[in-house]
């Protein structure tokens, strides 16, 4: 009986532990912190039109 209990506990333990062996994550950036967008939320910047050509030929 003792053996069976130990075996079952082993199975349960493996089930919890082994997901790590896949070394896979579902998402790429969730939970990350970053400094945020370059403009923030409060500024109203303007583009210097003399310095901008309209993007390149893709």
């Amino acid at each position: 009986m003792k053996k069976r209990i130990i075996s079952l506990l082993l199975i349960l333990g493996l089930s919890l532990f082994l997901p790590a062996c896949a070394n896979m994550h579902v998402t790429g950036g969730v939970g990350l912190n970053f400094s945020g967008g370059p403009y923030g939320m409060r500024v109203t910047p303007s583009v210097n039109v003399g310095m901008y050509g309209g993007g390149y030929r893709w």
């Binding site: 969730v30 912190n33 970053f34 400094s35 945020g36 967008g37 923030g40 939320m41």
Partner: peptide, 16 residues
């Protein structure tokens, strides 16, 4: 595209 929830210091987003 994907969108992920990121915490950001200035509460604004950015395309990566």
């Amino acid at each position: 595209a994907l969108m992920a929830r990121y915490k950001s210091d200035n509460n604004s987003g950015e395309w990566i």
